[in-house]
């Protein structure tokens, strides 16, 4: 009986605290005010694990076809570079203003901080899934609503090579003609 009362008390307390946090407006949602370390860790771990699990059974096609780089390159320049930058570019309105910050996809994975990407294939799968489905409550849109899998794989192939491209190579691959 005593135990039951304690459990009841604790749950009422929990609901009360949650309600107080929600209704008091104490949580700051401003994008120019970073999360605390704890909240950041919670969100990041949840996101990374969710993506890896959702993507684990996706079959990765051959990504070495040069044609993929041409299709993916043009799409990247017009749909992604404003947020994810390109060789020789360090910042943009979006890369500075968005929070969570869009990772700079023109530098290699090891050098953008805070990320564990596992092996290469899993990284391709994760990228495909993220591009197709987007990420909730971040600036990352779901491109799968307007682009077929083939176009998305081409972008995956392109961002795989992106960190190794010079600005000149990038310009040629992404130009319209």
């Amino acid at each position: 009986m005593k135990k039951l009362k304690l459990v009841l008390f604790l749950s009422v307390l929990g609901v009360g605290v949650t309600a107080a946090v929600i209704y008091s407006g104490i949580v700051n949602v401003a994008a120019d005010e970073p999360h605390s370390d704890l909240v950041y860790w919670l969100l990041e771990a949840t996101r990374e694990n969710s993506i890896t699990k959702a993507a684990e059974n996706i079959k990765v096609p051959d990504l070495t076809d040069p044609e993929l780089l041409l299709s993916g390159g043009v799409d990247y320049e017009f749909m992604c570079a404003s947020c994810h930058l390109k060789p020789g570019q360090r910042k943009s309105d979006m890369s500075l203003g968005l929070y969570p910050t869009p990772p700079n996809l023109a530098v290699s994975n090891d050098s953008h901080e805070g990320h564990e990407h596992g092996d290469d294939r899993q990284a391709d799968r994760n990228n495909f899934w993220v591009i197709k489905h987007g990420i909730k409550a971040s600036g990352m849109p779901a491109w799968g609503k307007t682009h077929d899998d083939q176009r998305i794989w081409a972008m995956v192939a392109f961002i795989k090579r992106l960190p190794s491209l010079t600005p000149e190579q990038y310009q040629i691959l992404t130009a319209i003609e």
Binding site: D65, L68, L69, L173, A175
Partner: peptide, 22 residues
């Protein structure tokens, strides 16, 4: 923009590389 092909340096290109072929 048009691709700026004058900047291609063929001597540095590895023709087995998908980037070079593209």
């Amino acid at each position: 923009e048009k691709a700026d092909c004058s900047k291609m340096d063929h001597s540095k290109m590895d023709m087995n590389d998908p980037v070079a072929i593209a």
